[in-house]
Design a protein around this nucleic acid. Structure first.
Length: 1030
RNA sequence: GGGCGCGUAGCUCAGUGGUAGAGCGUCUGCUUGACACGCAGAAGGUCGCAGGUUCGAUACCUGCCGCGCCCACCA
């Protein structure tokens, strides 16, 4: 296939905006045609990484939960594949017994007004298969639209011949081992679906508001009565005992006597049973219905009671029900009460709240019914599955699910696997005319017991989850010992929703261990549920299901994928709002345009020259940041922290590569051809193509498209001709010195921009009087070298840069900013609004004060200095020193400013604040020149004088700041701000708190960029800790 | 009845035993030669409440309040 990006339209230049529809349609066939998605079972040289896709219901349609599954798994697969693994991602679909059968039955009823019984089993099944053929392909199309790199050559369906064979094999073997048996006992029966259900398919309505009805059973000897209660009056027709607690004095005399059933005349005993009866509940006497209640069933077994079934599979009363025979169970409920009341035995009804079991599918109230069903004896299978997790052979992420899994496994009940349905794997058991059972892999000719012919196969099918439980190995060819199994089993990760941890994950564990001798997967990653923007679970009945295709159409698959990944944090469900998707669509557009910019500015770039010597500090800075982004993204992926991985890459691309580097690089790129320009080009190409590779697992389409454009533009023949085949960026050492030394450049630009913003100086007005000072030698060199970039980014005409720590000059009509390791003065000539600048400086100072207060308080606490780790104390000391210094500088600037406007009446409030400052610190002698109320002989002169000593003021004030800051802050805050937030003034004690926080925030902003190494260490530390925990 | 999770900016959510973060929204400027799906700046937080542990808690522990989920055969 020819390179689809390089047609005539796209060869020359990128479109101005990213058109996802056009781009996304191109690449899937390209990848598929090259066989990229095929896992090679013969390749055992490389480590393998395999995932089996949780098979969606074949007749269904994907919803956003599936899209999340597909996204996360594709992220893992593409990442691993690019990292050199032999990957397999195996797709397939599930026949979904009840669900599918119900869909087809409903359709049949609607279109032909027929039931499945009208058609007969054979014909009905033909219809289901036809339905499957018709709708089954939709799922594949949806996955392709999402970009899922599934190995379609290996696609499976749970009712394929191969998988069906695996199902029979497992059933027969388990039967041979005595782990599958048939027995008549009570099961949960759905009268609507006409089938038995497993415990898991029962949904418990937690607080059903119903009624508790009491009535009296007369003693058969006429000596009295005994009052019992029930929430299901109709079951009294099947009562075969009344139970009381053996220690209950009230009934001691009655035990052993009989009661007479008021409606049927049957007589049955009063028994004593300590397990069933809680003497404190109700009357302390319980009616016992062994055929219709689980507790009563067990009680019946203990006492050898008769089991009388009075309700049929359709939920109607049967012939045993005497006077209410033929009635529906709910009608019978009313009728029984009437009949009993007529006999004068009604003892009242009261409201009662109790749990009620409903069918997961039909929501029908379930009926416990006595019937013959097949079961898996589960405990022997569960034990090894528990041990495997205990031994760490399989681990759960997030970890908390381990407990959930363990709790269920340790308290597990035998699994009812037969279903009275037609759609599914028919149970491989045959009955001879004498009723003997023969279990076999293929239809036997004669009874295994008596040899008689005329066998009839069990009509029931197996629970859908029975075949699902085999999925990790049945799809790879088991029971044959295939190469695929040898290469890819156990799978690496089981990635699915936590809602099916019992249904599926636990059962795969049991079956995998039992039949393969090894766990089916090393890691179980359980992703959150996707909910709508109101937080509701998406379901068809609520009508809030979103088809992923609607979203990919509108925003693009890459945007959807990125959104889902970015929202997948551990431990919380995803509420999906369209604004979020829009945001990431914008990100795709951003990436597109960054590439577009690169493509437009690579004239003369030589791909061979990948490590030019003339790299500037800016170049080295972005290279360091690129490496850091790689390290952090990979670390996040390793830990299944998808949101962090996506977030890191996002932040790097947008806020570092685009917001900073591209703007910085323009200085070099726009100039004449030079080593510097070449270096910038090479750096840009490196950062961008690394970003593309980094993002590919998340946004496969756009990154592939851009990769081709970039590759063609730089004529980099060494690059693979698909990003899918390129290597994932590798973690490595970060050039921390490059990050650190570039800090002042960013800080200075930030500072000037802040002054512009706050002082309302539009960007287009070039600043002509800018001075940069207080730089250390190293910083000075960097700033000198990068001055052109500072000029460009802040629109400064010609800044003066002072070497070796020399401070800026003190001049009025200026705005000043003090950062870590630099200070900047922006002369605003006539344009300066002194009031505004004073307000701005006061804000800065109050931020510093707030910070300083906290630190000083800590440092003043002997316990802190003694007990805290020395490095923490040292860090705080240094920080305090830094803050004091900044504060001093700002105070000096402030003093001068206020002096210039210190004509009578000007800024009285602010002046007061300075005085106030001194008053608040009685322990500190107020430096004489810090009294601005002194008449000024000339503004300039005064300013000079004040400035010269103001640094001292700053230091003094700072060291004493602990006591007076709150007041100071309050006084110097701009009046308008106060007025805006009157409601927040309630708590006087917390006056300064909000601003302290603002201060921290402001600090952090610059600090974070500059102090990248610090942040990095912190993260690394965190990672190490997490590692230990697991 | 048992268990789990959540409560952080207007909204949706990250996060951490030592300087509170993002996206969206809001406000103020910008048609700056990649991008208005954009650029620059700003505002906005007793990190649910109360105790405890600690030099230090939004984070760890206990209790409470509110919300959500899972498991469960009390008539």
């Amino acid at each position: 296939m020819q390179n689809p990006a390089m047609n005539d339209e796209t060869r020359s230049e990128l479109a101005k905006g990213y058109e996802h529809k056009e781009v996304e349609s191109r690449w899937y066939p390209f990848w598929q045609e090259r066989g990229y998605f095929h896992g090679d079972e013969k390749d055992r040289a490389r480590p393998h990484f395999s995932i089996v896709l949780p098979p969606p219901n074949v007749t269904g349609s994907l919803h956003l939960g599936h899209a999340l599954t597909a996204t996360l798994q594709d992220v893992l697969i593409r990442w691993k594949r690019m990292s050199g693994f032999n990957t397999l991602w195996l797709p397939g679909t599930d026949h979904a017994g009840i669900a599918t059968q119900m869909i087809v039955e409903k359709e049949l009823k609607k279109t032909e007004k027929k039931s499945r019984h009208d058609l007969g089993r054979r014909e009905f099944l033909a219809r289901v298969w036809a339905w499957k053929e018709k709708y089954g392909s939709r799922i594949g199309e949806q996955h392709k639209a999402l970009g899922a790199s599934l190995d379609w050559e290996r696609e499976r369906f749970t009712m394929d011949e191969g998988l069906s064979r695996a199902v029979r094999e497992v059933f027969v073997r388990l039967h041979e081992e005595g782990l599958v048996y048939r027995e008549k006992k009570l099961i949960n029966w759905c009268p609507e679906c006409h089938t038995a259900l497993s415990d898991l398919e029962v949904e418990h309505e937690e607080d059903h508001h119903g009624q508790l009805w009491s009535f009296a059973y007369p003693l058969a000897d006429g000596s009295g009565e005994i009052v019992v209660a029930t929430t299901r009056p109709e079951t009294m027709l099947g009562d075969t005992a009344v139970a009381v607690h053996p220690d209950d004095e009230r009934y001691r005399a009655m035990v052993g006597k009989k009661v007479r059933h008021p409606l049927t005349g049957r007589e049955f005993p009063i028994i004593a049973d300590a397990i069933l009866v809680d003497p404190k509940f109700g009357t302390g006497a319980v009616k016992v219905t062994p055929a219709h209640d689980f507790n009563d069933f067990e009680t019946g077994k203990r006492h050898g009671l008769e089991q009388i079934t009075v309700i049929d599979p359709a939920g109607r009363m049967n012939a045993e029900a005497g006077p209410v025979a033929g009635l529906d169970r709910m009608e019978a409920r009313k009728r029984v009460k009437e009949l009993v009341a007529e006999k004068g035995l009604d003892r009242g009804t009261r409201p009662h709240v109790y749990p009620l079991g409903r069918c997961q599918r039909s929501q029908t109230v379930l009926e416990p019914l006595l019937s013959d069903q097949w079961y898996v004896r589960i405990e022997p299978l569960a034990r090894p599955a528990i041990e495997a997790v205990e031994q760490g052979k399989t681990r759960f992420i997030p970890e908390q699910w381990t407990n959930t899994y363990m709790a269920w496994m340790r308290n597990i009940h035998d699994w009812c696997i037969s279903r009275q349905l037609w759609w599914g794997h028919q149970i491989p058991a045959w009955y001879c005319p004498d009723g003997h059972v023969t279990v076999a892999r293929e239809a036997p000719g004669a009874c295994g017991t008596c040899g008689k012919a005329g066998l009839r196969q069990d009509e029931d099918v197996l629970d859908t989850w029975f075949s699902s439980a085999l999925w990790p190995f049945s799809t790879m060819g088991w029971p044959e010992r295939t190469e695929t199994l040898g290469t890819f089993y156990p799978t690496s990760v089981m990635e699915t929703g936590h809602d099916i941890i019992f249904f599926w994950v636990a059962r795969m564990m049991m079956m995998g261990i039992h039949f393969m001798g090894e766990v089916p997967f090393r890691t179980v990653y359980l992703h959150p549920m996707v909910r709508d923007e109101k937080g509701q679970k998406m379901s068809k009945t609520k009508g809030n299901v979103i088809d992923p295709l609607e979203i990919t159409e509108r925003y693009g698959a890459d945007a959807l994928r990125f959104t889902l990944a970015a929202l997948t944090a551990q431990g919380r469900d995803i509420k999906l709002a369209k604004e979020r998707i829009e945001g990431y669509r914008a990100f795709a557009n951003k990436l597109w345009n960054a590439s577009r910019f690169a493509l437009m500015n690579l004239e003369g770039h030589d791909a061979a020259d990948s490590a030019p010597a003339a790299r500037s500090p800016a170049d080295r800075w972005i290279l360091a940041r690129t490496q850091r982004a790689v390290n952090e993204t990979v670390a996040a992926l390793e830990a299944f922290r998808f949101n962090e991985a996506a977030g890191t890459a996002y932040h790097f691309v947008w806020h570092e590569l685009c917001d900073w580097y591209i703007e910085l690089a323009k200085e070099s790129l726009y100039g004449e051809d030079s080593p510097k320009k070449r270096a910038a080009q090479a750096t840009l190409v490196h950062a961008l193509e690394t970003a593309l590779r980094l993002l590919h697992p998340f946004m496969p389409f756009i990154t592939e498209e851009l990769w081709h454009h970039l590759r063609a533009r730089v004529k980099a023949d060494a690059w693979p001709d698909s990003i899918y085949a390129a290597a994932y960026p590798r973690p490595g050492p970060v050039d921390e010195a490059a990050e650190r030394s570039f800090g002042p450049v960013i800080g200075i630009v930030d500072a000037i921009r802040n002054i512009r913003g706050e002082m309302n100086v539009p960007f287009k007005v070039a600043l002509e009087d800018v001075e940069i000072g207080s730089l250390g030698r190293e910083a000075w060199a960097t700033v000198r070298e990068e001055l052109g970039r500072i000029h460009r980014l802040a629109n400064v005409k010609d800044a003066a840069v002072h070497a070796d720590g020399a401070p800026i000059e003190k001049r009025p009509a200026s705005a000043v900013a003090v950062g870590d390791g630099f200070e900047v003065r922006v002369g605003l000539a006539g344009a300066v609004d002194v009031g505004a600048e004073l307000a701005r400086i006061d804000k800065e100072i109050s931020k510093l004060d707030a910070d300083l207060t906290g630190i000083q308080k800590k440092l003043a606490n002997p316990a802190f200095v003694e007990k805290a780790p020395p490095e923490v104390v040292e860090k705080d000391r240094a920080r305090a020193e830094e803050l004091r210094e900044k504060r001093g500088k700002l105070l000096a600037h402030r003093a001068m400013l206020s002096a210039t406007v210190d004509s009578p009446g000007a800024n009285p409030g602010r002046r007061e604040s300075m005085e106030n400052q001194n008053e608040q610190n009685p322990n500190q002698p107020a430096p004489p020149s810090s009294q601005p109320s002194q008449p000024a002989s000339g503004a300039m002169e005064t300013a000079e004088r004040i400035a010269s000593t103001a640094v001292e003021v700053g230091k003094a004030a700072a060291s004493a700041v602990v006591s007076g800051v709150g007041e100071l802050v309050e006084k110097v805050m701009p009046a308008k701000k106060k007025a805006r937030r009157p409601a927040k003034r309630k708590a006087a004690a917390r006056k300064a708190a909000p601003r302290r926080k603002a201060a921290r925030k402001a600090k952090r902003k610059t600090a974070a960029r500059k102090a990248a190494p610090r942040r990095g260490k912190k993260k690394a530390r965190r990672g190490a800790k997490r590692g230990k925990k697991r």
